[in-house]
Each structure stands twice: as structure tokens, then as C-alpha cells.
């Protein structure tokens, strides 16, 4: 029989998980230059909600953990092409060469247009995963890997001593794809149109310029090379091109599986504090094991000799 048995009720386990989860935040931004346009994102998220179920098969099921976007900005930058009048060549009779007229341009340079609408309130995703409880030994003498994959994810401070650490170790994870609603397409098109329009004076000048560039919507689509369904294009960008989905999934996995224990027990464990110059009394913790039952998490361990 194990020397020590500890049990944590499912409700307490859930509270621990909730508090740990509450510390998970992720923010990132990137901007990729595609020549005529730039695409990027500036995002920040945290986790909320979800249910925790300790199961009889020694697993923990986390369901419907909400990804809450504090910021989900899509950055779209267009390099509006040169808008010029004149130009062209006319044929002249010999010996005069063909004459080419200079172009006179509306702007002194190629104007940039950039929008960064925030779709945080329009996108909702959930994460669900099933994992096991894993007890691992943290040996303070073993150097951390370099680079340390937990450097930005660690919310539980690194201990200064050896520890038994218990992790929720997800085995499989379901993460909703980015799915931008229909309204997003219109918002992007409107925002870009407004941004481009703001560059151009009104009246006949605008008519002329719009005629030259062939209409703003068409210009935008031509530059960005996007299909009719902007939402789908955007979803695809986030899911695949930016690689954000995989990134978030990996972060959540690492956060729980290897960077932040849900419980920890010092080894040796101090049972009597230092007093009046006397060293603290510590007991070695050996053979620690953890398992999930239907209603609780049970840790068993021995006191070392």
C-alpha cells in the first residue's frame, strides 16, 4: 500500500483547471508582403468556459473550451497602382520617329491603402480535447531545452527545486476552423473601398480615376486575387496560409501538456519549517503516480527511506 494517498475531487480539479486555463493568453501578429499587397493579422486570445470531466478510463475530457478573441485584426494593405493620364504613342511619317507621350500621374507616388478591421466579436471557436493525467519529475539540475518551447507559455513559475508535476496531457484535440461569417466579406470590401476612395478627390476627377483603375471593387479583387467569397478566402488564410490554426493548437497542447503543471509537489517535501537556525525537515517523495477516476483524481506516493 502506498504511504500517502491524496485525492482531489472533480470539482476541485475543475477549479484548478479553470484557474490555469484563465492564465492562457496568446497574441501574435504577422505581416506578409506579396508585392502588390500585404496580408497580416494581429490577434490576441484567451480561453473561457468549457467543461471538465474526469473519466473512469483514466482520462480527462475537456469539452467546448471557448477561444475568446480579444483582438482579431485582419490587416490588408494594397499598393494602389499608378494612376496616370496621357501616355501612349502616335505613329509619325518617316523620318520622324513614333512619338510617345509622357504620363502624368495623379499621385506623386504609389499610394498605400491599409485596413485592419477587428473581427473579434464575429468569430467564435471551441477547443475540445481528451487527455491523460501525467506525473513527471522536474529535475532542477537538468538544463531547460534551448530554445525553450515553454518560454512564452509558462505561467506557472519554474521551481527552484525538484518537483513532481502533474500535467493534463492531451492526446487528441479538436479545434474549430476559423469560420468568418458572411458579413465579414462586405466589411472588408467596404473598408477597402472607403480607404481607396479617401485617396481620390470627388466629382469628375473621381470618375476619371475610377475609369482608369477600373472600379475599386474590381481593383481590390484584382490586386488581392481573391475569389467572390471573401469569407472563404479569409478563413482559408487563417486556417492554412497563416498557419494560425496549427499554431494555436500546438500552443494549447504545449501549455497544458508540458509547460504548466496543474499540480506540483516538492521533492523533498518540507513538513516542518526551518526554525531558530534549524534546517527544515523534508521528506523524500518517491514513486508518485496519478490516475483519474470517475469522480476524482488520486495521487499515490511513498515516503523515501
Amino acid at each position: 500500500m502506498a504511504h500517502l494517498t491524496l485525492a482531489v475531487s472533480e470539482a476541485t480539479f475543475k477549479r484548478s483547471f479553470d484557474l490555469l486555463k484563465r492564465n492562457f493568453t496568446f497574441q501574435d501578429s504577422d505581416l506578409q508582403d506579396y508585392g502588390a499587397f500585404t496580408l497580416g493579422y494581429d490577434v490576441k486570445m484567451h480561453l473561457e468556459g468549457g467543461s471538465v470531466d474526469l473519466r473512469a478510463d483514466n482520462t480527462v475530457q475537456i469539452k467546448e473550451l471557448d477561444i475568446r478573441w480579444d483582438r482579431l485584426k485582419v490587416i490588408i494593405g494594397l499598393d494602389v497602382p499608378e494612376i496616370c493620364v496621357g501616355g501612349g504613342c502616335i505613329n509619325m511619317p518617316w523620318p520622324v520617329p513614333d512619338i510617345c507621350l509622357p504620363k502624368i500621374c495623379v499621385f506623386s507616388g504609389d499610394p498605400d491603402v491599409s485596413i485592419s478591421p477587428d473581427f473579434a466579436s464575429l468569430v467564435a471557436q471551441e477547443i475540445s480535447f481528451t487527455g491523460s493525467l501525467a506525473a513527471r519529475y522536474f529535475d532542477v539540475t537538468i538544463p531547460l531545452p534551448s530554445p525553450d518551447p515553454c518560454q512564452l507559455l509558462r505561467v506557472v513559475p519554474l521551481p527552484g527545486n525538484n518537483q513532481w508535476q502533474i500535467f493534463v496531457d492531451p492526446q487528441t484535440m479538436d479545434l474549430d476552423l476559423f469560420d468568418f461569417p458572411d458579413i465579414v466579406g462586405n466589411l472588408i470590401e467596404d473598408a477597402l473601398t472607403s480607404a481607396v476612395t479617401a485617396l481620390i478627390p470627388g466629382g469628375w476627377v473621381r470618375d476619371l480615376i475610377l475609369a482608369i483603375i477600373g472600379g475599386i471593387a474590381d481593383l481590390i479583387r484584382a490586386i488581392l486575387d481573391i475569389p467572390d467569397d471573401i469569407e472563404e478566402w479569409l478563413s482559408d488564410l487563417f486556417n492554412v496560409s497563416f498557419g494560425l490554426l496549427d499554431f494555436i493548437g500546438t500552443l494549447v497542447l504545449d501549455f497544458f501538456a508540458s509547460c504548466n503543471p496543474i499540480y506540483s509537489i516538492d521533492d523533498p517535501f518540507e513538513i516542518l519549517p526551518a526554525a531558530s537556525g534549524l534546517i527544515p525537515v523534508r521528506i523524500p517523495i518517491r514513486n508518485l503516480s496519478v490516475r483519474a477516476h470517475d469522480l476524482e483524481m488520486v495521487i499515490q506516493t511513498d515516503v523515501g527511506a
Binding site: M1, H3, A7, V8, H293, L295, V303
Partner: peptide, 23 residues
């Protein structure tokens, strides 16, 4: 379950407590 009536449960077997005493 150990925790039917509390949030946490801890049990020390006498073999364990005697080791603790020795420490």
C-alpha cells in the same frame, strides 16, 4: 470515492508516518 464528502483527501499509512518520524 475518497472525496465524496470533502474537496481533498489525504491519507498517511502508518508505514509512511514511521518513515516520516525517522526523517
Amino acid at each position: 470515492a475518497f472525496t465524496d464528502r470533502s474537496d481533498l483527501y489525504a491519507a498517511v499509512h502508518e508505514e509512511g508516518i514511521n518513515r516520516v518520524v525517522r526523517h
